[in-house]
Amino acid sequence: MPQSNSIYGGQAVIEGVMFAGKHVNVTAVRRKNEEIVFYEVPRTTMKWLKPLKKIPLVRGVVGILESSAKGSQHLNFSVEAYAEDELEEEKANGTAPAPVEKPKKSGLSLTAIFGIAVAGIISFVIGKAVFTLVPAMVEQLLFGQAFENIILHNLIEGLIKIIFLLIYLYAISLTPIVKRLFQYHGAEHKVISAYEAGMELTIKNVQRFNTLHYRCGSSFIVFSVLVGIVVYSFFTWDSMWERIYLRLLLLPVVLGVSYEVLRFTNSLREVPVLRYLGYPGLWLQKLTTKEPTDDQVAVSIASFNRMREIDRQVEQSQAS
């Protein structure tokens, strides 16, 4: 497979992988009958968002919210497929509840898709706000009166965030469904790495690559903590409520700067010494990715190939 200048990303979903192409986002999910099914959504961006995606700092916030919205649609598809398989298994075992008649679904309506997208954005914002505020409150309660050095307060706050994050990720990784999700996350990274290396996407070739990747959202989480320590150090507060207010006000700034840092470290990953700037994110990925099975890699390859196929069809159509 020839190398390309195209930069692809994706995410793991329940029993599958989503890849974002230039013209389409494609999710492949393996059902319990071993069939691989696809969910394909054309990539569209509102006209008023396009100029914002070219502005440094602003483009990061826009991109993150857009990814949360679109990613939630694909996650919802995988959850529905998984739930249907579980129900079928219960029926086969005679343990399912009495069926309730409902119209056969022909796909998500535009209203449903919009609702899921909005829910994805809200979930991301609330989750990020909680992850930002709780460590600040804990640090304030424990050390608020112990000393006045703002930088030291921020360092301790950042340490508390990292500890909370590691405990949370480790705890959920022990559950079977999340462990498999993290395996699919590893499969997604392996396919992207194999493609970027110009390798033919076979299971054998893909499995040779590492589950870690510089451009991962897990790396973004680490950078947001580190960037937050720096950004918050430029501001002082006199009470816990003022501290919380500043954290919420500065959250878009932290997200925007973190996105730029992630892009910068990714551009330096082939530069000796400087490539180590991306290592904190790679270390966190040791928790959020697991070695995938061959079957999981096959699903990831199927998703990527389908995305590339549709991209080519769209481009050929536009050229003719």
Results as ranks from 00 to 15, higher is better:
3 Q>H: 10
4 S>N: 02
5 N>G: 12
6 S>Q: 07
10 G>C: 10
12 A>R: 06
13 V>S: 03
24 V>K: 02
26 V>C: 07
33 N>Q: 11
36 I>Q: 02
38 F>R: 01
41 V>A: 03
47 K>H: 02
47 K>V: 06
48 W>A: 11
52 L>W: 01
53 K>C: 08
57 L>Q: 04
59 R>S: 05
66 E>C: 03
67 S>K: 02
70 K>Q: 15
71 G>A: 09
75 L>Q: 12
76 N>D: 08
79 V>A: 11
82 Y>L: 13
82 Y>S: 14
87 L>D: 04
95 T>W: 02
98 A>E: 09
102 K>L: 13
103 P>E: 15
104 K>T: 15
107 G>T: 09
108 L>T: 01
109 S>N: 10
112 A>Q: 13
114 F>R: 11
120 G>A: 14
120 G>E: 11
122 I>E: 06
124 F>P: 03
124 F>L: 15
129 A>Y: 12
130 V>N: 10
131 F>N: 15
132 T>D: 09
134 V>I: 15
136 A>T: 13
137 M>A: 15
138 V>C: 07
143 F>Y: 10
150 I>Y: 10
152 L>A: 10
154 N>Q: 13
157 E>G: 09
159 L>P: 01
163 I>G: 09
163 I>C: 08
164 F>T: 03
166 L>M: 13
167 I>H: 08
168 Y>A: 15
169 L>A: 06
176 P>H: 04
177 I>P: 00
179 K>R: 11
184 Y>K: 06
187 A>D: 06
189 H>N: 12
189 H>E: 12
190 K>I: 13
190 K>S: 04
191 V>H: 05
193 S>G: 06
193 S>N: 14
196 E>P: 00
205 N>R: 04
207 Q>F: 03
209 F>D: 00
209 F>R: 02
210 N>V: 07
213 H>Q: 05
216 C>P: 01
217 G>L: 12
223 F>V: 13
225 V>H: 02
231 V>N: 03
236 T>F: 09
237 W>L: 11
239 S>L: 08
239 S>M: 10
240 M>N: 08
242 E>Q: 14
242 E>P: 03
243 R>F: 07
248 L>N: 06
251 L>M: 08
252 P>E: 02
256 G>K: 07
262 L>G: 07
267 S>G: 15
269 R>K: 14
269 R>F: 07
270 E>Y: 14
273 V>I: 07
276 Y>W: 00
282 L>P: 02
285 Q>E: 11
289 T>N: 02
292 P>M: 04
296 Q>V: 04
297 V>P: 00
297 V>H: 00
299 V>R: 04
305 N>L: 10
306 R>P: 00
308 R>M: 05
309 E>I: 02
317 S>N: 14
317 S>D: 04
317 S>H: 07
318 Q>P: 00
